[in-house]
Computed example of a mutant assay.
Amino acid sequence: MAYFTNFQNSLFLYSDLFTEEKQKLDNYLRILEYSGLDRIIAETVTKSIEKGGRPPYNPFRLFSAILFAFSKHSGSLRRIEVSIRFDTRFMHLMEQKLPSYSTISRFYNNIVVARQREIFSCIMKEIVQKYNIDISEVFIDGTKFEANANKYNTVGPEN
């Protein structure tokens, strides 16, 4: 069942989203769809719905907007709220729904922070599998580090 990739065309508001940008967002949503996050999010959200209250926003789309915000800017929850209201990419991700700061904060703290290691590992496994990334060596900023403690030590003239 598709949780993240519910493609419904809209007539207004974010119609100026370029085709290339929309394809990037759709690929991003497909990665989330195939990563298996639906199980984690659905399990956590079901527990919170049983407590009562009005139905929440689409938790899968809200998660995708939060994750996208962390990749694009600082990840301030207030800034995420502003982005959802005014950035066409976020409007596309949220299907033009406008959650408040408190809704974003509650979702972020109860789901994303609580299960961050599991969420991160699911996403990384899908990215590694989809793009055939070799993770046998680790590079930081394109630099390969070597563990040889005395490699650059110099010895002065002998006495």
Score class of each variant (00 low, 15 high):
Thr5Gly: 07
Tyr3Leu: 01
Glu95Phe: 04
Asp141Ile: 02
Glu158Lys: 15
Ile133Pro: 00
Glu21Asn: 13
Ser64Thr: 13
Asn148Pro: 09
Ser83Ile: 06
Leu67Val: 11
Ile111His: 00
Ile140Val: 10
Tyr57Glu: 02
His73Val: 01
Leu77Trp: 04
Ile123Ala: 01
Ser10Cys: 13
Arg78Glu: 05
Gln96Tyr: 12
Ile104Glu: 05
Glu81Gly: 01
Asp87Thr: 06
Phe18Gln: 10
His73Gln: 15
Leu13Gly: 08
Tyr28Phe: 14
Ile66Arg: 00
Phe7Asp: 11
Tyr152Ser: 08
Thr19Trp: 04
Gly52His: 08
Arg89Lys: 15
Thr143Phe: 07
Leu67Arg: 13
Met91Gln: 15
Phe12Thr: 12
Ala69Gly: 14
Arg85Trp: 05
Gln129Pro: 04
Ser10His: 15
Ala2Glu: 13
Gln23Ile: 13
Ala69Val: 03
Arg79Ala: 06
Phe139Thr: 12
Gly53Leu: 01
Asp26Val: 08
Arg85Gly: 06
Arg117Tyr: 06
Leu37His: 02
Ser15Gly: 11
Asn27Cys: 12
Ser15Asn: 10
Ser83Val: 07
Ala69Met: 08
Ile84Ala: 03
Phe120Cys: 15
Ser15Lys: 10
Ser76Trp: 01
Asp134Met: 09
Ile140Thr: 03
Leu62Met: 13
Ser136Ile: 03
Phe4Val: 08
Asn110Ser: 05
Arg39Leu: 11
Asp16Glu: 15
Asp16Arg: 13
Val82Asp: 12
Lys151Thr: 04
Asn159Lys: 14
Ser136Asn: 09
Asp16Lys: 10
Leu11Cys: 11
Phe120Gln: 14
Thr19Phe: 08
Lys125His: 13
Ala147Thr: 09
Pro55Thr: 00
His92Met: 01
Phe90Gly: 04
Ile40Cys: 05
Glu43Met: 07
Pro55Asn: 00
Tyr131His: 12
Asn9Lys: 13
Lys72Phe: 11
Asn109Gln: 10
Ser136Gly: 11
Ala149Arg: 11
Tyr14Trp: 08
Ala2His: 14
Lys130Pro: 09
Ser76Arg: 07
Lys72Tyr: 12
Tyr131Val: 03
His92Gly: 08
Ile66Ala: 11
Ile80Ala: 01
Ile119Trp: 00
Ile66Leu: 07
Gly52Glu: 03
Phe12Asp: 13
Tyr3Glu: 01
Ile31Glu: 05
Ser121Glu: 14
Lys51Phe: 05
Ser10Glu: 14
Asn150Gly: 07
Tyr14Asp: 04
Phe7Ile: 11
Gly142Asp: 12
Ile49Gly: 00
Asn110Val: 11
Glu137Val: 07
Arg54Val: 00
Pro157Cys: 05
Ser102Glu: 03
Lys72Ile: 10
Leu32Thr: 10
Thr143Gly: 00
Asn159His: 06
Met91Leu: 02
Tyr3Met: 14
Ile127Glu: 03
Asn58Met: 05
Ser105Asp: 05
Ser71Arg: 14
Phe18Glu: 15
Val128Phe: 08
Lys144Asp: 09
Lys72Gln: 12
Arg85Glu: 13
Phe90Asp: 04
Tyr101Asp: 06
